[in-house]
Amino acid sequence: MSQLEIRDLHARVEGQDILRGVSITLRPGEIHAMMGRNGSGKSTLAYVIAGHPHYEITGGDILLDGESILEMEPNERCQAGIFLAFQYPVSVPGVSVANFLRTAVSNVRGFTKEAHMASQEGGVVGSHLMPMRKFRRELTAKMKEFQVDSSFARRYLNDGFSGGEKKRTEVLQMAMLEPRFSILDESDSGLDIDALKVVADGINKLATEDRGFLLITHYQRILNYIKPDYVSIFHDGRIVMTGGPEVALDLEEKGYNWVEEQFGPAEPVA
C-alpha cells in the first residue's frame, strides 16, 4: 500500500537542530493535521520533505512506498507524487502561470520523458510539452472549479497577487499536478473567512481516496472546514501527541502553554 513515511527525522540549519526525531506516516485517503506554535519547526518539516537544499538531514529517513527519497532532487520528489503548498509562495516576475504550469504538468505526467525516449529511438519528436489545446482546456476547467479567475493564466506567477490569490493559486497547481501526497504549509494563514472557505473547499475537492494530506496549521480555524482523520501536536522539533479531531479542540481550549506544561519548554532556537 502506498504511503509516505517520515521516520525519526532529524534536521538542522546553520548548525541549529530544528527537527529532533519526527515520525509520521501519511496514507491515501487520510488527512493528518499538524498543529504547533510558530517557530516549532513545522515549516522546516515541510521544506525538508520537499527537498529544500538549505537543510541538513542529520538522522532518520523519508520513505515513499518504502524507498528513501532523501537523495532525490525537489523536482524528482514532485514527479514521484509529493507536493508542497508553500506558506509564502514565491513571486517569479515575467513567468506566467500558464507557461510555468504547462512545463510543470508536462514533466509530472511524463511528456518530457516520452519526447526524450522518442528522440533516443530516432522516432519523430513531437513537442516535449503537453499539447497546448489540451492543456488550455484542462487549465480553464480547473480554474473555474477552484475559483481562480481565468485572467490569472496570463499573469506572472504570484507577482502582485493578494494573500488569498496566492493560496488559491497553490491549490490550483495542486489540482493540476495531481499529487499522491500533499504537504500544506499554513495554507490558511493570512486569509479572511471567505478566502479560507474557498481554499478549504478546494482541498476538500482534492481529498479523494487515493490522496493523502499533511495539513500544517497554527490555528484550529481551518479544521472547521476540513475534517482531519488525525491531529498531531508539534512541539520543540517533534510530534508530542497524536489523536483524533478532539486533540485540536483540546488545544484550542487549553492553548499552547498547556503543551509546554505537559512536554516541557522548547529548546531555544537562535
Binding site: N75, C78, F83, P89, V90, V92
Partner: peptide, 26 residues
Amino acid sequence: YVFYLMARGLSRPQAERLIVQGFFQA
C-alpha cells in the same frame, strides 16, 4: 525561485531558463 519551481516538478535547467526568460519579459 529555483526551489519553488523545482518543487513543482521543473528540472533545475528548466527553472533557470524560465527565470531568465521572465527577467527579459519586462
